[in-house]
């Protein structure tokens, strides 16, 4: 159940919220189910969930670009997700 392990930090972050914990446990189980569904062609009419903005990899791209810029300034490695949004002589 490796996805439960991945979700453990989230559980810890939300520790103390009993109703949320219960819901997240259900979420973890759903994640495992989703990941193990057969890899078959998904028809357009089955993509209601996938069409939601938060299911796009570019969702909240402005926030992601801010994160990228901060880490570009403070760490030796960057990139991976997309092209850089602009260089800097970061301090």
């Amino acid at each position: 159940m490796k996805y439960n392990i991945l979700l453990l930090p989230v559980l810890l972050l939300l520790g103390g919220c009993a109703s949320l914990n219960e819901r997240i446990s259900q979420t973890a189980a759903d994640s495992v189910t989703a990941a193990t569904e057969t890899l078959t062609s998904v028809k357009p009419w089955q993509r209601g969930a996938l069409a939601q903005p938060e299911m796009q990899f570019g969702y909240l791209s402005l926030d992601a670009s801010i994160d990228d810029h901060i880490y570009f300034s403070k760490e030796a490695t960057s990139g991976g997700r997309s092209f850089a949004g602009g260089g800097c002589g970061c301090n």
């Binding site: 759903d30 989703a34 990941a35 569904e37 057969t38 890899l39 998904v42 089955q46 993509r47 209601g48 969930a49 996938l50 299911m55 990899f57 990139g79 991976g80 997700r81």
Partner: peptide
């Protein structure tokens, strides 16, 4: 797309 509820992205740069 992996399923009606999941998708994956892989990049090489």
């Amino acid at each position: 797309i992996l399923s009606p509820r999941s998708l994956v992205q892989l990049n090489y740069g």
